Simulated scan of single mutants.
Amino acid sequence: MATNRFHVVDVFAQERYAGNQLAVVHDAASLTDAEMQAITRETNFSEATFIDSPETRDGGYDVRIFDPAEEIPFAGHPTIGTAFVIREFVRDDRPDELTLNLGVGQIPVHVERDDDGNETFWMHQIPPTFERTFDHSFAARILSLDEEDVDRRFPVQLVSTGLPTLVVPLRSLDAVRRAETDHGPYYTDLIEPHGNMNVVLFAPEAEDGNDLHARVFADCAGVPEDPATGSSNGCLAAYLVEHGYFDLDDIEVCVEQGYEMGRPSLLHLRASKTDDDIDVRVGGRVISVAEGNLL
């Protein structure tokens, strides 16, 4: 007998079968934690989300996010993709503003349309925290690169907007393409002493005329490489403003990701420095791919 309905969407995609895949399961209050973890592993995606109920609580929808290893308090493409599914398949009125209740708190999402009618879903991330920095040589070692590949003008720094990410500035598109995690130092020198984190590496060159080209590694979560990562790009947006990468306190940039995986993705970043903090928003398109029921 059919049970929970689910949808599969591609997030940060310009067309179907690009971007980052996401499975969104409805009426998840009927599932145990172990079942949600097993379903996530069954999809073989980097994350799956579970909408507790079609009803709101405190103005938001209770949503849980799992990666292949564990439940996590926040992730970018699951937030945007789940908001899309709620708007398209749960609500009858297709509102342009929604709120998700996640582990990090309430995350608002709103929709903007361009002149051609294309819709971009924007999430407002929690204020960033800037944590410890690492030597450039250390970053090169864990990414199997030469030290000269790392851009010494800017720090290698751990940043979080709900999910920790190590931000690594590289000098060239070629360096980004050559990077791969060296599992020895990656685990023994980074993950074991400092905890699980994503690693985002980027360069100011791009394949398709965008502002930056990025890759994200999350081996510790069972995701060797992620095709589109909203949480890490939110950390990147905050980093770009904090360290004056573009010599601006307000930025709006386009980041391409996933090209090395054959899943090209486009993420829109907005960040602005205020008196007290940095306001971070990440946006992208969402395309519906499949729907069905768990058995």
Rank of each mutant, 00 (worst) to 15 (best):
264 P>W: 01
93 D>H: 15
168 V>S: 01
65 I>S: 07
245 Y>P: 08
202 F>T: 04
226 D>R: 02
152 R>T: 15
233 N>C: 07
74 F>P: 06
59 G>Q: 11
214 A>S: 15
77 H>Y: 02
235 C>S: 14
150 V>A: 02
257 Q>S: 11
83 A>C: 14
145 L>I: 05
193 P>M: 10
215 R>N: 14
93 D>S: 14
139 A>E: 09
32 T>W: 11
92 D>E: 14
57 R>I: 09
242 E>A: 02
196 N>Y: 08
34 A>E: 15
259 Y>R: 12
86 I>S: 03
211 D>W: 09
288 S>L: 01
230 G>A: 05
188 T>N: 07
112 E>I: 04
257 Q>H: 06
26 H>Y: 14
198 N>P: 01
108 P>E: 11
260 E>G: 06
180 E>C: 11
229 T>A: 07
36 M>C: 15
288 S>H: 14
156 V>N: 05
3 T>R: 03
206 A>P: 10
221 A>P: 06
262 G>M: 07
127 P>K: 10
118 N>I: 13
147 E>C: 06
86 I>K: 08
283 G>N: 04
191 I>V: 15
167 V>F: 00
178 R>D: 07
99 T>Y: 01
238 A>T: 01
184 G>W: 10
17 Y>R: 12
52 D>I: 00
244 G>A: 09
254 C>T: 13
243 H>V: 02
249 D>A: 10
133 T>R: 12
